[in-house]
Design a binder for these strands. Structure first.
Length: 566
RNA sequence: GCGCCUGUAGUGAAGGGGUUAUCACAAGAGGUUUCCAACCUCUUGUCCCGGGUUCGAAUCCCGGCGGGCGCACCA
């Protein structure tokens, strides 16, 4: 089978079998929007469920769910509004696009559109073709905006460009849930939205996409170290570092050599690898690429992309970043709260002895009346004690009051400080679910031959296929059809195990249809089944068939031990 | 967004200013068949959308939308 048109054949199959299709096709379709069809939607859900289970099983991670509509302030604080509103201009001569503020030589990002257009018109030279014919600058807003509330009183909001902000919003609740102890994490899966200028490559660059993100909050002074990560993987370290060039190395060793700069990041790289293998990504087609300093977001300190190889080349499918305290800090600042922090106990409490003045209320009160409150608070907050008493004290309105010895008491105070507040750091693994599903399909799609005819398999990992097994009556007569329905129903009553039934056409064709969409097990009901309740079980991957009692089959399906029958 | 290519049943293709648009596979109904895309009969279903040229447009032209590739963009 020729390789050159494989992408076309795979895409055709995905449409034909209802896995992934262009959305709104009867109205001409919309670029960057896709449907998961009757088969694909189940595959997508199962991949997401495996992802959720993968993280929840760790024990210190919980799931949350927050709105996709996000008020503007949140995304101003996160930096998305600024980043997504860059003015762009294009050279009419060579069609190169540039950030308008950069091309006019202003890095302050304070110029407005009028100023920039004026400078552009005054002969700024295009760096790529040396001419000077610019289009008027226009904002490149990659977020979908909307309004909350009707008419002009509404509040500007955006469809979220990432799910991460939801976890930051819920930090106070998470902190309480975890009994004020770090580390802990929160995951969220759901839709994200970016109004891409030019969506391309099928399901790789979408305008509405499925994301799955984890925010893992840690104490930067005490970063969690986990063991593991011994499998040898492909790493491409920062090309500007001393480790440039592709490396075959384990995560553990890479951490040891400081190629991976943070122990928790190393752990999540390893857990990401585990997940990808679990859902059926080919291990030879995974690599981890470290961002160079100039590629990283300004706040991140160690950033890795997990790239997967497929029909479109190496595609970034997971980003793992140490976002440090950036997000929590900037939300704390913008929202004027002080709830986005964690408490850290000192190993030893710090004990400080300090001389302090205490106001003597029974003297000050009757004497100063209305001024007593202010005077008392000034005295209590004095960092530096006056050298002698009496002394003069200045009030906020400029008057001066003389404080005499009977008005205050000088005492030695012992202050014990048990710990301090700090802003946790956050390690963020962010998964592009659609891109991962694309590569699952790409890697599973196998074009082979059967008796000289082209034959295709989708060798999906167990648990990823839309159903777990298909029940096939050899013929729809002599009660085989009814028996098959009965068995399919019994199988469907097992939690999280699904079966389908197919009566149409010859048995060989039905096996082929099941193979094409990756159903791992085919259960055939034949004449013997009617006599003794046994069925044949065919394994997709090698077409080996065995016979088993329906009761045994159900037990093995429930325990996910089907392979032990063979 | 720009440039080049492109759009015909579910899928892949053929054709094309003039009767009812063709083929294969797939799908549905029935028959046959004791386990791997078999066979027979019947059936369903297509010219991306809009405008123009024309007596007549699915065909030619223009625009839009969608797709592919390249350039640019990708927090």
């Amino acid at each position: 089978m020729s390789e050159d048109r494989r992408l076309d054949r795979l895409s055709s199959m995905l449409r034909r079998r209802g896995i992934v299709l262009p959305a709104f096709e009867i109205y001409g379709g919309v670029s960057g929007l896709i449907d998961y069809g009757p088969v694909g939607a189940s595959i997508r859900r199962r991949v997401v469920e495996i992802w959720i289970d993968h993280w929840l099983s760790q024990g210190d991670i919980v799931e949350i769910d927050s709105p996709t509509i996000t008020p503007e302030e949140v995304l101003v604080a996160s930096g998305h509004v600024g980043e997504f509103n860059d003015l762009m201009t294009e050279c009419k001569s060579c069609n190169s696009a540039f950030r308008a503020d950069h091309i006019v030589g202003d890095d302050s990002e304070t110029m407005d559109k009028k100023e920039i257009d004026k400078i552009l018109a005054n002969g700024v030279i295009c760096p790529s073709c040396s001419k000077s014919e610019w289009t008027p600058s226009s904002p490149m807003n990659l977020m979908f905006s909307t309004r909350l509330g009707a008419m002009s009183s509404g509040r500007t909001a955006y469809m979220r460009p990432e799910t991460a902000q939801g976890m930051f919003m819920l930090f106070p609740s998470l902190y309480r849930h975890f009994r004020q102890k770090l580390p802990f994490g929160a995951i969220q899966t759901g839709k994200g939205y970016r109004n891409e200028i030019s969506p391309r490559q099928g399901m790789v660059r979408l305008r509405e996409f499925n994301m799955a993100e984890l925010e893992y909050f840690i104490d930067p002074q005490n970063p969690p170290m986990y063991s593991g990560g011994s499998e040898v993987v492909t790493l491409i370290p920062d090309p500007q570092s001393e480790y440039s060039g592709e490396k075959k190395i384990s995560f553990a060793e890479a951490l040891d050599k400081n190629i991976i700069r943070h122990p928790t990041v190393a752990w999540f790289l390893s857990r990401t690898w585990d997940f990808l293998i679990k859902v059926g990504i080919n291990s030879d087609k995974i690599r981890f690429r470290q961002h160079a300093n100039n590629e990283m977001a300004h706040y991140a300190s160690d950033c890795w992309d997990c790239e997967i190889y497929g029909e479109y080349g190496w595609i970034e499918c997971v980003g793992i970043a140490n976002r440090t305290c950036h997000d929590l800090e900037s939300h704390e600042k913008s929202s004027k709260t002080s709830t986005l922090r964690a408490w850290r106990n000192f190993e030893e409490p710090k004990v400080e002895e300090k001389e302090k003045l205490f106001p003597n209320g029974s003297v000050i009160g009757p004497m100063l009346r209305a001024d007593a409150r202010e005077v008392a608070s000034i005295i209590e907050e004095m960092e530096k004690l006056p050298e002698k008493i009496p002394f003069d004290l200045k009030l906020s309105d400029g008057r001066t009051i003389t404080i005499t010895a009977d008005m205050v008491e000088r005492r030695l105070e012992t202050i014990t400080v048990n710990g301090e507040w700090f802003t946790p750091h956050v390690i963020e693994p962010a998964f592009g679910i659609d891109r991962i599903i694309w590569h699952i399909l790409d890697h599973a799609y196998e074009e082979s031959q059967k008796e000289g005819e082209p034959y295709t398999y989708l060798r999906l990992a167990k648990g990823v296929s839309n159903v777990d097994c298909i029940v096939l009556p050899l013929f729809d007569k002599d009660g085989m059809g009814d028996l098959a329905k009965n068995y399919a129903q019994q199988i469907n009553s097992i939690p999280n195990i699904r079966s389908e039934i197919d009566f149409s056409k010859s048995i060989g064709r039905r096996y082929a249809r099941a193979d094409e969409i990756g159903i791992p097990w085919a259960i055939t009901v034949d004449h013997t089944s009617i006599e003794d309740g046994s069925v044949t079980i065919r394994r997709r991957d090698d077409q080996v068939q065995i016979r088993a009692e329906i009761g045994d089959l159900i037990g093995h399906l429930r325990n996910k031990t089907m392979d032990s029958l063979f």
